[in-house]
Design a protein around this nucleic acid. Structure first.
Lengths: 135, 135
DNA sequence: ATAAATAAGACTAAATTAGTCTGGTATAAA
DNA sequence: TTTATACCAGACTAATTTAGTCTTATTTAT
């Protein structure tokens, strides 16, 4: 249905929140969950993904939390989304350098090559839209 | 995950097939299913949707089938996809004229308005890509 | 009449996504 | 140095969505 997952939405919401609360102090997963009234555990996992993908920095222990690692103008939506949704593509069978053509209806479907072009354009939209733009 | 559904893929595949086999004769759902080795029933339903949405014309009875109603250059991917997937949007809570703001985390999420811009760009990509381009 | 085709919708199965739970580690502060 | 707070990681379950099947009806060329 070409819909973003909750994880992606939460990633955007969390990142936006951190970008706005740009005091020196780190933001906790709990604070984000409370402010947005969403599942703490899920946001927590999303934030962990963001950290693994170098979007955020985490601080453990009391007074711990998360801060953005880069400027909101330098964080693309595609970075945020790919962090929580590694295989972000409109159809499975797009040829890439790594993934060589594993389409279920292999060479008979013929729509995958043209769709790769569409994918590029979609990626461009999400690449060019920065966190700063959704604030 | 922002992936097209099989129904959308099948709609593209079927439309492409009809565009290529541009003889006067109608193409049957069975032929499309066989050629692409995909579920007959599903393609059949997809073709019915396309017909309801004025993409194709159907002919019932023996020697029946489907033909495209318009020129492949005048059929947008978004028409094809929306035929089988009426609520084609990256997130549920985008404000539109009809659907007034039914976001689960209502006005606290704040990402929906900016995402509406992203949605417009995505729509543009799928609008500007015509059936003729994926042949 | 009959066989081949579309039409429509109910139903089931499979896959994906969302959300929960558990146990662990790090660390500031009492 | 204990304790409370917060991150980390992965297994697990529940809910939702998507994919696919089945059934019945209608149309129409031969």
């Amino acid at each position: 249905m070409l819909k973003l997952s909750k994880k992606s939405e939460y990633a955007l919401m969390a990142a936006r929140y951190m970008a706005i609360k740009n005091h020196g102090t780190a933001v906790t997963a709990k604070e984000i969950a409370d402010q947005h009234q969403i599942s703490f555990e899920l946001v927590a996992k999303v934030l962990q993904s963001l950290t693994r993908n170098d979007i955020t920095v985490s601080f453990q222990g009391v007074k711990g939390g998360y801060t953005l690692k880069k400027n909101p103008l330098e964080i693309s939506l595609i970075d945020l989304i790919r962090s929580v949704e590694p295989d972000f593509q409109i159809t499975n069978c797009l040829k890439t350098d790594t993934n060589k053509n594993e389409c279920s209806h292999s060479d008979c479907c013929k729509i995958k090559d043209p769709l790769a072009e569409v994918q590029k354009k979609i990626d461009k939209v999400f690449y060019e839209t920065k966190l700063a733009h959704i604030i």
